[in-house]
């Protein structure tokens, strides 16, 4: 129970890592801004997200030092992404597959409500 252990247990990251990361992040920002001036149609979003994910990876691994951390810290962080993905996947795919929420179909078929009007007299069927 020594309060005075000066054992050098902390890994000090060389400054050049940080400078290189800073420069890469700034360059990537410029890239994403420049690319956004051109219209790639449906590819706009994936390209922007790809650049953002690369930037996020740099921040997480170098600035936040996750690559030098214990395994469980990594598992915990990746776990959060997995569960976020579950949330996204189920709720978004539900929205996607509800026909009346689909604006294109709604316009085409003039569907406003999921409830189909009853055919007159149908309620008397036994």
């Amino acid at each position: 129970m020594s309060n005075h252990d000066h054992s050098d247990h902390h890994f000090i990251v060389p400054a050049r890592y940080y400078v290189a990361t800073l420069l890469s992040l700034l360059v990537l920002t410029i890239i994403t801004v420049v690319v956004a001036q051109y219209n790639f149609g449906g590819w706009n979003l994936p390209i922007a997200l790809l650049v953002a994910v690369i930037k996020a990876g740099l921040v997480i691994n170098i600035f936040m030092g996750l690559r030098w951390n214990r395994t469980f810290d990594r598992i915990a962080f990746l776990g959060s992404l997995v569960f976020l993905f579950i949330f996204f996947l189920f709720s978004f795919s539900d929205e996607l597959l509800r026909p009346y929420r689909n604006p294109i179909e709604a316009v085409h078929h003039d569907i406003k409500s999921p409830v189909k009007p009853l055919v007159k007299g149908a309620e008397h069927h036994e």
């Binding site: 915990a76 962080f77 776990g79 959060s80 976020l84 949330f87 709720s91 978004f92 929420r101």
Partner: peptide
């Protein structure tokens, strides 16, 4: 470790808003 787990909660906190974003963008 405690801080990373706190950040896990933050990921889901903001992440849910990005799900709302996806919903709006698609709609």
């Amino acid at each position: 470790l405690g801080m990373w787990i706190f950040l896990v909660t933050e990921v889901l906190f903001f992440g849910a808003l990005f799900v709302a974003y996806a919903f709006l963008r698609w709609s």
